[in-house]
Design a protein around this nucleic acid. Structure first.
Lengths: 189, 189
DNA sequence: ACTACTGTAAACCGATCGGTTTTCATTTCG
DNA sequence: CGAAATGAAAACCGATCGGTTTACAGTAGT
């Protein structure tokens, strides 16, 4: 077993940071984070150099579960088209869940403004990974212009997630046909 | 003439709020706003009930210029397709300008989280206006499903503006073909 | 039992938050 | 000229910010 039954202070802080910054924004105070984690500020600053470092670490260590919940398993038998659509099905599912506020990585970048902020850099890397997945599947599926298709898909992903996050759209009947259209035109059968 | 040569305190505050909250986020302090506007806090709180009210008013009164800079003039001779594409051309232009941080109305809603915040409600209304424009042009152009097309267009608009705003994409060669594809499939000649 | 360590709780630091009030120089007007 | 109104500057308020430090309870190792 690699999983801990009893999360340590570090893990509880990462979890609290993930939960509270997603719900309340990156402006959340360290007092609130420590309280939610049941950890003293002293311990926080022994484990992390700063609040920014905690935030960046929280994003980074949550990335694995995030992409795992979004991407299809590697080398399942399905076609690139199906594998791409899988991602958007998962997004639509997430968007319907209570408490959904949009893609946390996009939100963090928008809230922080500063692109050089460590958490912003982590977020950018994760987004780039998703784009890379799209681009690989596009190429594998024989898309006319894999780069263009990948950019279109991540654009739709971020747009859909943002609009659902602010409650402007519930995505019902929107994402699947839009993605299908882009895949069709790109020649992804 | 309706334009003032000498902006009064109220206008300077609205302008400062627009500039600074866009650049630094809604977390900007009232001291900084007052300093930038050259207005005392006393005057601020005579003119506006709260910082939130100032922010909401700033968004609301900037909306006219915003949509005017985005939408084509009413009843120019052009086709719905051209009029829709016009909006995305303007967006691409904005995105290339220095200091572009994405659509301010989307950013405000993401930063505030709370949908009931007065500024968030103003932002939502403005976005709805843009969607209404898309939907009207879609219908006028004979789109198969005007509602769907309008939702697709605003999704692309927000996605493109967000991704350009965080520096993840420069939109070159992306937005126009994507929108064109959606218009084609919707039957908008 | 004694020491050494761990980590929580809480005091504390200077800075800043949103917001109110006081001060005072300037302008406006009778 | 003198009174009233305006508005900027800044002090002030309690609260909170990110971050440090102290104090102390618990627990291990010997």
């Amino acid at each position: 077993m690699t999983t801990e039954v009893k999360p340590n202070s570090r893990e509880r802080l990462l979890e609290a940071a993930a939960t509270l910054t997603y719900r309340d924004g990156v402006g959340i105070g360290v007092d609130a984070l420590c309280k939610a984690a049941g950890v003293s500020k002293k311990s926080l600053y022994q484990l992390f150099a700063s609040k920014d470092a905690l935030l960046a670490a929280s994003l980074k260590e949550g990335a694995g579960a995030y992409v795992a919940g979004l991407l299809p398993p590697a080398d399942d038998g399905r076609s690139p088209r199906e594998r791409i659509l899988h991602v958007f099905e998962r997004l639509e599912l997430q968007a319907g869940a209570p408490g959904f506020q949009g893609c946390r990585y996009l939100s963090v970048q928008i809230e922080l403004k500063d692109q050089r902020h460590p958490a912003s850099q982590v977020a950018r890397r994760i987004k780039r990974n998703l784009t890379t997945f799209f681009r690989a599947e596009a190429e594998r599926g024989g898309a006319k212009d894999p780069d263009l298709l990948a950019r279109q898909l991540i654009l739709v992903f971020d747009g859909a997630s943002a609009r659902a996050g602010i409650g402007a759209d519930n995505l019902n009947g929107l994402v699947a046909p839009t993605v299908a259209t882009l895949l069709d035109v790109a020649g992804l059968r």
